[in-house]
Design a protein around this nucleic acid. Structure first.
Lengths: 426, 426
DNA sequence: CTGAAAGCGCTTACAG
DNA sequence: CTGAAAGCGCTTACAG
């Protein structure tokens, strides 16, 4: 015992012992034919095989005969060939239809199997170690019971903290029990480049009944092509295409931003600025639209140039000056990075958050769990978005849904400490 | 624009617009037959169809004829039926073999397709929107290009901090580029009970070419049954079966524990205790074996009862007394919880870590990232274990590996602050 | 209740 | 270089 352990301990890489398992990679007729030929030569010929290599026509019959012999004579010692339904049927003295019906008693087929027969069939299945081939089932049924999850970036990107994690968790929660497995398309990876759905012409997504797409696509035309194919899919996050209607489960960034503006208004803020990144996708559009519509509703319109589009790294003192020159008292920062950058710049001028300036963040990062805590902000319902995406996809697959399905889920407001009331005049 | 946005904002659940996509769930002959019948009645009959419903024999031929008509006449307007290789072949005026060869130019088949033909075929594929059915490819090839990932618990368990995350990350890293997708078996979930591989007789793992198993199985007989079937799989973490040889990529808990004992010895510790949980699996066995073998090697043997097996919740003052009565100066705690519990009990006696007692933890939890920092400990190479498991599995699938493959990977020692030198006599 | 057979949509030797 | 056909391992109407 001690020795055995020591052996395992010492070797960093050990491959020991004789082969005990053998995988059957599904050989093809000709391959099998050769195996049979060898077999036949080694003594168990059941028909003249002198010119076996040439008798292409006859080989199939011979194969069948030999296969039947094999099934009877060598029980489980010859593990080369996969045990099929036909083997079970033969041995149980029934047709494959009965075996299939035993396996799927609830199927709508007319076949009813008697208790006794079913028992016998099940016994043979155990005896032969039969397991149905799910791939063949999928092909025959036209249904795979697989839901795809596609991400353009890595599914498990960083060391800790994964943007997709909450969504994946929601997806798993909702899909679990619905009888679907989850396929992550890792094969679509092309070296360093972002993944593509239609890499090399063939769409791997097709292994799944439908798919959920996470993360931002570099090229929105892929979504349109996917929709054109009639492949059912749902994106997590709103996506827009001028050409096709897309399905999504999104966060209500517009409403949430609107709400923060209202909140600021109640606290006395009248001059409010929006500072977002240079990249503008659906998400950013929604935030800004929510901002503008709330400003309009509250009669706080300040013309078109109350919104700044600039990445945090580029945000400089000049930029801050232009904001301050408008006598702004509340800044809505798209990201924590924007907020922190603004705070740094303000500090350089001797101004502090929230005493001299209120700032709210329009989201909650997943990575920086500590720094975000003090900020007034909202949080997207990431887990619920994953769940809802699954719901929409399953509804589509069930035929419960005809048109495009688009769900907007409310974000959660988190008061934080960086949005303070202002007295008139400030 | 503003209005449109407002519409999206207001509705929490909106399903709008007409149906634009249609999924073909692979209908069966009879179903299709009915659709065809309807079609035929609506004007495009090409053969007397008065008693169509009854002509079971004839229907198949008719179907074929109508189908061919469809393919020619209605281009893409009738999206009901999936575009197949046969459709492409027909329209391009070639055989399906040529289409297949165009798709797989590198296959070892004798078929060579001329440049021109290939071009024409590809054009037709685009025109018809053809995408190969990966399920059918899998069945025909006998290879799925899917690696399964099975966990007995949820793959994405807790809100934040996921025990499996680093392993999944390693798995994705290694599998990416190898041309495999990753299938998470979420369907195996049975309500609240732990998942089972052989739930309901059929083994869903079979959709994959092979699988990686994560987490502790409640029932080790499932592993043996899986091995009996000849299904290729690798566990992350050492697993032992008396009956079959298993494949695993494990952490070197024995070596790491051994190393900590040696380290303690160098710092002057002579009386060392091991405190582990009541549950003893391979992991715990390895730690304890490493402890015992190091103690033996260093001539520190203290008889059989220098190891305590007790869960942290049950660990009480009496237990601590029995440890202290042996004049122990260093305790190896299996988990952080053990260590913290011991520290609490020591504090009750006015003793402090590490001044009055050194403690090392035999692992690093993933959840409690802050509290663990000060402890002397080691860390399992979780990510590398995932990668190695994939390597072993792929090697098996390639046939590069015959026997069972067992890899032990070294843990990383982290000095921390809770293991201090002792002067003689202490 | 059961058998024979077609079909799911591909791939692949084999014969031209 | 290409076509006709078998096979992968199932499911499912249909005829007994």
């Amino acid at each position: 015992m001690e020795d055995r352990r020591a052996l395992i301990m010492s070797g960093v890489r050990t491959a020991l012992g004789p082969s005990s398992s053998e995988h059957d990679p599904g050989r093809h007729p000709a391959v099998r034919c050769q195996a049979v030929a060898r077999n036949a030569k080694s003594g168990c010929s059941i028909t003249p095989l002198s010119d076996f290599q040439a008798c292409h026509r006859r080989s199939r019959l011979i194969m069948r005969l030999i296969r039947e012999r094999e099934t009877v004579s060598t029980n489980a010692s010859n593990k080369k060939r996969r045990v099929t339904q036909a083997d079970v049927a033969r041995r149980a003295g029934v047709s494959t239809a009965v075996v299939s019906a035993t396996l799927n008693p609830n199927s709508a087929t007319g076949v009813r199997v008697s208790q006794d027969t079913a028992k016998r069939v099940r016994a043979v299945m155990r005896e032969l170690g039969y397991t149905p081939n799910p791939i063949a089932q999928s092909l025959a049924r036209g249904k795979r019971n697989i839901l795809g999850v596609f991400t353009y970036e890595s599914v498990f990107p960083s060391e800790r903290g994964n943007f997709f994690y909450p969504m994946l968790r929601g997806i798993e929660m909702q899909v679990s029990g619905a009888g679907y497995d989850l396929l992550l398309f890792t094969s679509a990876q092309t070296a360093e480049a972002p993944r593509q759905i239609f890499a090399g012409g063939s769409n791997r997504l097709g292994v799944a009944d439908g798919a959920i797409l996470l993360g931002q696509e570099p090229d929105s035309s892929e979504l349109e092509r996917l929709a054109d194919e009639g492949f059912p899919f749902v994106t997590v996050g709103r996506r827009h295409s001028g050409r096709v209607e897309l399905n999504w489960a999104a966060a209500g960034y517009a409403e949430a931003t609107s709400e923060i503006v209202s909140h600021g208004h109640e606290l006395g803020h009248r001059r409010i600025a929006y500072v977002g990144g240079a990249t503008i996708r659906e998400q950013q559009q929604d935030r800004e639209a929510g901002f503008r519509s709330a400003m309009h509703r509250l009669g706080l319109d300040q013309g078109p140039d109350c919104c700044w589009h600039i990445d945090p790294e580029t945000l400089d003192a000049a930029c801050l000056e232009s904001i301050l020159s408008r006598r702004v008292t509340l800044i809505l920062a798209e990201t924590l990075k924007h907020a922190e950058r603004l705070e740094d710049l303000l500090r350089d001028k001797g101004m502090y958050v929230p005493q001299d300036m209120s700032i709210a963040v329009l989201g909650t990062p997943l990575e920086d769990t500590k720094s975000i805590l003090r900020w007034t902000r909202f949080e997207a319902p990431r887990e619920e978005m994953g769940r809802e995406a699954v719901r929409l996809l399953l509804a589509q697959l069930d035929g419960r849904l005809n048109g495009p399905a688009q769900t907007t889920l409310p974000c959660k407001f988190i008061p934080g400490d960086t949005l303070r009331p202002v007295t008139d005049g400030h």
